[in-house]
Amino acid sequence: MWTLQDAKNKFSTVVDAALAGTPQEVTRRGKPAVVVLSATEYHQLLKQAQSRRGSFTDHLLSYPGGDDSVERAHAAPRPVDF
């Protein structure tokens, strides 16, 4: 794990380690901030995440709202004077 200042000072070392297959964690003010990883590994993670995610349409169609399981509020409009 690198501090932000050390990672800035030795950025090529951080990048080399990430390219060698070891993601590099960087902290800011003692708290985890970012992870540097190779572009290949990033694209693999992105592809895996996208393959597990269904489409937005599928998400909407999977809503079980057709059986009146959700009671809706019946609010009357408020009077408005002009």
Rank of each mutant, 00 (worst) to 15 (best):
K10E: 15
K10Y: 14
K10P: 05
F11L: 15
F11V: 13
S12R: 08
S12V: 14
S12F: 10
S12N: 12
S12Q: 11
T13Q: 11
T13M: 10
T13A: 13
T13N: 10
V14K: 00
V14A: 05
V14D: 02
V14R: 00
V14L: 08
V15P: 00
D16L: 06
D16V: 06
D16M: 08
D16F: 03
A17H: 00
A17T: 05
A18E: 07
A18H: 02
A18P: 00
A18R: 01
L19W: 10
A20G: 04
A20L: 07
G21S: 01
G21I: 02
T22H: 09
T22N: 09
T22K: 15
T22G: 03
P23V: 02
Q24S: 04
Q24N: 06
Q24L: 06
E25L: 12
E25G: 11
V26Q: 00
V26E: 06
V26G: 02
V26T: 04
T27K: 11
T27A: 13
R28S: 09
R29Q: 12
R29P: 04
R29A: 11
G30V: 07
K31M: 08
P32C: 09
A33Q: 07
V34A: 07
V34G: 00
V35I: 15
V36R: 01
V36M: 07
V36L: 03
V36C: 01
L37I: 02
L37Q: 07
A39M: 03
A39I: 04
A39N: 06
A39K: 04
A39S: 10
T40E: 06
T40R: 06
T40L: 03
E41A: 02
E41T: 02
E41H: 01
Y42V: 01
Y42E: 01
Y42L: 05
Y42W: 07
Y42T: 00
Y42K: 03
Y42H: 05
H43T: 10
Q44M: 09
Q44C: 02
Q44R: 05
Q44P: 03
L45R: 15
L46F: 09
L46K: 13
L46M: 10
K47Q: 14
K47V: 07
K47H: 12
K47G: 04
Q48A: 14
A49P: 00
Q50G: 02
Q50E: 15
Q50P: 06
S51F: 05
S51K: 13
S51M: 09
S51A: 08
S51L: 06
R53M: 11
R53H: 08
R53F: 11
R53S: 12
G54R: 13
S55K: 12
S55P: 01
F56A: 15
F56R: 14
T57N: 08
D58C: 01
D58R: 12
H59R: 10
H59Y: 15
H59D: 14
H59F: 15
L60D: 03
L60P: 09
L60F: 13
L60N: 09
L60Q: 07
S62H: 03
S62I: 03
Y63S: 14
Y63H: 14
Y63T: 12
Y63F: 15
P64C: 01
G65M: 14
G65T: 15
G65I: 14
G65K: 12
